[in-house]
């Protein structure tokens, strides 16, 4: 896979963007020139300069430092919420696909109920009900994110459950959980990995949207969505307060999407 992936320069560019965000998140203390929470009221809305390469926000905080630190909640929420969604989706999808029958119908109707609500509105409703903190953001985004995994995994499992190697495993006495874990799931990993990679971008975008609406990361902690919300009223006077977090969100989501596309090509046996 890597041999094919590394020849795809677009995918490598995606990987570079993702790694850049990861480096920002892990090495924020080293990279950021200022404390992202340090308010300096009389340096409010300073244009980009040598002192503040991306300018300052309304409270005089260094925008570059806040962009660097802002990578943390985006990536943490993106990765954790995607992982929880994946776990729930894998379990439900595998059970529904493998056993079929009434259990499949029941689980898929439950999935349909969740799918009937618009993704973002359901997340807002859950957060409004639960209140805003990091754990609740994980819960809200996972609750709305698992359904697509369940559908994807179910479809893949159905296509594999009557394969000869599954029948062979069953004939030598392997139980259902062993067959699912050892023989079915490893063979559906490729599409799941592709979807997961792309879904991290979707979750990052959702987190930015929630923070923009005041339901995500709470101030004064930096988050790209929150930075957009706090800067939007000053767009005409200080466009840098909005443009840089916008670019950060755009490039990170683009990175995951390009990487996902690259993985799809690399893992596609027909190519």
């Amino acid at each position: 896979m890597w041999a094919r992936l590394r020849t795809d320069w677009v995918a490598i560019f995606g990987l570079f963007l993702v790694l850049l965000a990861v480096i920002f998140a892990f090495c924020a203390e080293i990279i950021a020139p200022y404390d992202p929470l340090q308010v300096a009221m009389y340096e409010s809305l300073e244009a980009p300069s040598f002192d503040h390469i991306m300018g300052t926000d309304i409270l005089g905080r260094d925008v570059f430092s806040r962009i660097i630190y802002g990578a943390r909640p985006s990536l943490i929420i993106g990765v954790v919420a995607t992982s929880i969604s994946l776990l729930i989706g894998l379990i439900i999808g595998a059970i529904a696909g493998y056993y079929g029958g009434w259990l499949d119908s029941l689980l898929m109707r439950i999935t349909d109920v969740f799918l009937a609500f618009p993704f973002f509105l359901l997340a807002i409703a859950i957060l409004t009900f639960l209140g805003t903190n990091l754990v609740n953001i994980f819960i809200a985004l996972s609750m709305v994110g698992w359904t697509n995994y369940a559908r994807l995994v179910r479809g893949q499992v159905i296509s594999l459950r009557h394969r000869d190697y599954v029948k062979a495993a069953r004939s030598i006495g392997a139980n259902d959980s062993r067959i699912i874990l050892r023989h079915v799931l490893p063979n559906i990993l490729a599409p799941v990995i592709i979807y997961t990679t792309m879904n991290v971008g979707v979750i990052i975008l959702a987190e930015a949207g929630l923070s923009f609406l005041g339901l995500g990361v709470q101030p004064p902690h930096p988050s790209w969505g929150l930075m957009l919300a706090e800067g939007k009223d000053y767009f005409f006077a200080a466009s840098w307060t909005v443009i840089w977090p916008g670019i950060a969100i755009f490039l990170t989501v683009l990175g995951y999407n390009l990487l996902g596309d690259g993985l799809r090509s690399a893992l596609d046996p027909r190519q």
Binding site: A47, P48, G55, F236, I243
Partner: peptide, 12 residues
């Protein structure tokens, strides 16, 4: 475009 725009803020 971002670099150009960010240099064009209005002074108060």
């Amino acid at each position: 475009a971002a670099l150009i725009l960010t240099g064009c803020g209005l002074t108060t």
